[in-house]
Structures are given as C-alpha cells and as structure tokens.
Amino acid sequence: MVIVNFLKCLAYNFLTVFFANYLLMGIEVEHPSKLPHIGGDLLFPLVLGLLFSSIYPILKVIDQNINLARIGIVAGCLSFGSYAILKFAPLGVEVKTVEGYLLASIVVALGGFLTNFFEMKRANKFPKPPEMPRMS
C-alpha cells in the first residue's frame, strides 16, 4: 500500500507540473514530446514529481514531528527553485516571463503541498501498530 500511495502521489505531481508547463502563460515547451520520443517536457515533470512525492517520506525519516508549515516550506522551495533553474538553464521547458515563473511555481507548489498534506492525513488516520516487545 505504501508503494501504491507513493505512485498516486507521483502521478498527481507529475501531471500537475506537466499541466502547468503546457497551459500557463509565460512558460513555453521547446520540443513537445510525442511518443515514442521523450523530451525534456516529460523528464522535468518526472524529476520534479519524484522530488515532491518524496517530501513526506523523507521528512518522516528525518523527524517524526511533521507539520503543515514544514511541508509548505519544502514544497515552496522546491517549486520556486526548480523554475528558477529553468529560467537560466532551459531543459526543454523555458520560463519566458516573471508572471509565468510566479504562476507556475505557485500552482506546482500548491499541488505538491496538497498531495503531501493528504499523505500526512492518511498516515495519521491509519498509524502503524506499535511493535510487540520481543520475548527473550
């Protein structure tokens, strides 16, 4: 079930980034992919989707006390950071305007925040049963 939830998170994040890149103004896809050709417009959402889907699991490993602010800050940093990288080094997707940068970053950060928030809510609803003490 953990893998299924991770895949679900990945699909949401991947599709949100893909949607933002194609539809929002100020962002341009240089060479749109058509299967079997796979371009940067698919690889960038895939990498960003993987990063966003890993926020909650990684925070959980680092620290057990996860709150919404932490998830929001990490999602915001990842989103704004990755689109800033795109501004200077277009990887198949190009940031044309500041409005595009802000809009895409906000939409993607919101998507990443929501998926991790739901993941946290689900984990809190079904907590792992406490381990039984071993009989010596």
Partner: peptide, 23 residues
C-alpha cells in the same frame, strides 16, 4: 482530467487543433 490533458499532448496520432493558453 489531468490524464486526458496529458494524453492529448503526448500520445501519437492525437493532435490539438486550436492550441491556446489561459486565459
């Protein structure tokens, strides 16, 4: 919704006829 949007753009043999951006 997102998967149909994705498929319309990457699937072979499918083309968007009037590509426009928001708004």
């Amino acid at each position: 919704f997102l998967i149909v949007f994705f498929v319309n753009r990457i699937s072979p043999g499918i083309y968007i006829t009037h590509y426009q951006q928001i708004p």
